[in-house]
Design a protein around this nucleic acid. Structure first.
Lengths: 138, 138
DNA sequence: AATAATTTGACGACGAATCGCAAATTCATG
DNA sequence: CATGAATTTGCGATTCGTCGTCAAATTATT
């Protein structure tokens, strides 16, 4: 089976069909989705699932480290599938696809920041917006 | 008077004492605050103001470009005072102070991103966390 | 001071997110 | 494959942040 089932079993949680379906949506879409959007997509596929369960499953996936959250400007919370620990997201403005990217050049940025205004950089959150390789061709 | 009053007059809006007080809190604090927090701070100062007015004033300040918003992970929306157009925020983890910083090294980052995975960078949102110069000394 | 405009406060509406509990599902065991 | 203990699910109610409505108050102008 997949990793999520194993991770759940290792923590004494059940790997249910419902949870697998929520994770599947995130895996397929690879873009930021609200709990409501995920719920609607599942219902559209003819799958019966409650909104509460979607919320609880998403919370679980975030705890497992396979999903990340983002607070939208309108107060909603969006979720996206992700695989590695520390990274950032490049969001395509055309198709919404989310790619994971490293944070290489931040080292020099941190140096400049300390030299310039004495700020000691410890962590950072970056969101990048633009066109993914597919959408940039058109 | 100050700039905000002039900007309001130029748009046919009134520069009221209430609005000045909300702006004053943001100017003094220089950190991300929710509408509720701002409301409580004003009430604690003995100022009578409704939560609705705080919300409306914050919306107005964002429209004027003197405040910026951030969606928190719990779905709340926070506001911070800011002065220049495009910039990013360095948030002190000790005192919460927010400093504005430029985005110099992003140019090279954009080049690497395009070369690496074909992503065309158009815009970005960055939040930096660490210690401001004062807190770093202790 | 009078007038026309905007703004304020109180109240309610709305939606996102959470909680409690009974019913259903999952999983290990025999 | 049936059984039982554990977890999970669904439903409804609830909380909470945010926004809309409208009469009363405030502001700016004459």
């Amino acid at each position: 089976m997949n990793e999520i089932s194993e991770q759940l079993h290792g923590k004494g949680r059940y790997a249910t069909r419902t949870r697998e379906r929520v994770a599947q949506v995130l895996r397929e879409e690879r873009r930021y989705l609200t709990a409501h959007a995920i719920h609607e997509m599942l219902v559209a596929r003819g799958i019966s699932i409650s909104l509460s369960t979607v919320y609880r499953t998403l919370e679980l996936l975030v705890g497992l480290g396979v999903a990340a959250t983002r607070g939208e400007e309108n107060g909603e919370i969006s979720y996206v599938f992700c695989t590695v620990q520390h990274h950032h997201h490049a969001v395509c403005r055309t198709c919404g696809r989310v790619e994971e990217v490293g944070c290489g050049p931040l080292a020099r940025f941190a140096r400049d920041l300390r030299a310039g205004q004495g700020f000691e950089l410890e962590d950072h959150a970056i969101e990048l917006y633009g066109r993914c390789s597919d959408c940039a061709k058109r």
